[in-house]
Simulated scan of single mutants.
Amino acid sequence: MGDDPIEPQPDTGYDDAGVPTFESVREKIEDRIATSIGAQELDSETPEGRAVEQQFEDRQRAAADRVEQIRKSMREGEH
């Protein structure tokens, strides 16, 4: 009876007190980051994703143009 080897317990990701191990937390974070990056890549390849990206760029350009107009008008008012 005493010759039976003790089988290793599977790694549950938690210690005996029920606290998540560092490795399990790190794995979850890495999985979420990978999923997020993958979703962004897929989204940027869809027509809808490209349209949103184009809208953002258009707004950025419009904002930069407006700031430049304001700066010009302020310089003209100084003279």
Rank of each mutant, 00 (worst) to 15 (best):
E78V: 02
D16F: 14
I29H: 14
Q54C: 02
D65V: 04
F56H: 08
Q9D: 13
A64T: 01
A62T: 01
Q54E: 03
V52I: 15
D58A: 11
Q55L: 14
K28C: 15
E76S: 12
D4G: 01
G77C: 11
Q69L: 03
E23S: 04
T21I: 06
G2C: 04
E57P: 03
F56R: 13
Q54K: 10
L42S: 11
V25G: 13
K72L: 12
A34H: 03
S44D: 13
G38F: 01
D65H: 03
R66F: 09
G13C: 02
D11H: 02
Q60L: 08
G49Y: 03
D15R: 01
A63Q: 08
R66W: 12
E45L: 10
E41C: 00
D15W: 01
E57T: 11
P8Q: 01
Q9H: 03
T46E: 11
G2W: 09
Q69V: 09
E76Q: 12
E30I: 11
A39D: 07
R75G: 00
E68H: 09
E45H: 03
E68M: 07
A62E: 07
H79I: 09
T12W: 03
F22C: 14
P5R: 00
Q55D: 15
G38I: 02
D3P: 03
S36A: 14
Q9S: 11
G13E: 00
T21M: 01
G49E: 02
E30V: 08
I70V: 14
R75W: 02
D43Y: 15
G38T: 01
D4L: 07
R71C: 00
K28R: 15
R61W: 05
P20S: 04
D31S: 06
R26F: 08
D16W: 11
A62S: 01
E30K: 13
R32H: 15
A51T: 12
I37Y: 06
D31A: 12
R66L: 13
A63N: 08
P10M: 10
A63C: 07
E57D: 10
Q60F: 02
Q40M: 12
K72R: 15
V67L: 05
D16K: 10
G38V: 00
G2K: 03
I29G: 09
P47Y: 02
E78Y: 02
D58V: 03
V25H: 14
V67Q: 05
L42P: 00
E48K: 06
D15K: 04
S44T: 09
G49P: 06
R75S: 00
R50Y: 10
K28M: 14
E27N: 14
E53L: 11
D43P: 07
A39G: 08
T21G: 01
A64H: 00
A62K: 07
G2H: 10
Q40I: 12
S73T: 13
E30A: 15
I37Q: 11
P10W: 08
A63H: 06
R59H: 00
A39W: 04
I29C: 13
A39E: 06
Q69C: 09
P20W: 08
